[in-house]
Design a protein around this nucleic acid. Structure first.
Length: 209
DNA sequence: CATGGGATTGACT
DNA sequence: GTCAATCCCATGC
């Protein structure tokens, strides 16, 4: 796979978040197409970089085109792409993928449902990567991948191909945050079953898709 | 050095 | 809809 160059990430983070929809991510023999992203920028308080340069946010202020991986709620590793010029804290959170290869490797890394209807059965495709914590688990991405190069490291991000060349994109407000909740900095591939919930509605429509 | 909160998920009511 | 799990690290004393 040809990877996106660092220059791709060296522009306004909201623009990169939109452009990453339809691009590919792969790691450890598995990968998929990005169907959901969110933008974060040091100028707004939901961004980790808002507090300035600390040991935790060092990667965010580094050069564009690197992975920023951090632990969320003590449990999940979340994958971001560092954007904008070195010295500016900005990143795109990769929130969901449509898996394209390595599905069995993903299922091996994702525990099957312990109870209920799906107990003991393999997870459906749309449950493998339909959330930021799920996709890192499915791909085997950990904090050890923090700061790795997205163009030549363990995590690789590639350009749009095939039926994802000109994706129809929905946008909405970001999820799971308590500050700067009004910014419409979340982007999704319209009608895609792998987007996490809640899914943004089409403009003027009453239903998703 | 102690404390508190968080860019989530899965299980249960 | 509600809830706990569980770790990193920013902040404050």
């Amino acid at each position: 796979m040809k990877a996106l160059p660092p220059e791709f990430y060296d522009r306004p983070v909201v623009e990169v978040a939109r452009e990453l929809i339809g691009c590919t991510v792969e790691h450890a023999g598995a990968g998929g197409v990005i169907v959901e992203t969110e933008a974060y920028h040091e100028s707004e308080p939901a961004c980790h970089a808002f507090v300035g340069l600390t040991p935790r946010t060092r990667t965010l202020f580094g050069p564009p085109g690197h992975a920023y991986v951090y632990r969320s709620y003590g449990i999940h590793a979340l994958l971001n792409a560092v954007c904008e010029a070195e010295g500016v804290g900005a990143a795109v959170l990769i929130r969901a993928l449509e898996p394209t290869h390595g599905l069995e490797a993903m299922r091996a890394r994702r525990p099957a449902g312990a109870r209920g209807r799906l107990a003991g059965r393999p997870l459906p495709d749309e449950d493998l990567c339909s959330g930021p914590g799920k996709l890192t688990q499915a791909l085997g991405i950990t904090l050890a991948d923090n700061e790795s190069h997205l163009a030549g490291g363990s995590v690789r991000v590639g350009p749009r191909t095939g039926r994802w060349l000109d994706p129809e994109i929905r946008e909405g407000t970001r999820i799971g945050i308590t500050r700067a909740v009004d910014l419409s900095w979340r982007f999704c591939l319209a009608g895609n079953a792998h987007v996490s919930r809640p899914r943004p509605a089409a403009p003027g429509a009453t239903r998703w898709g």
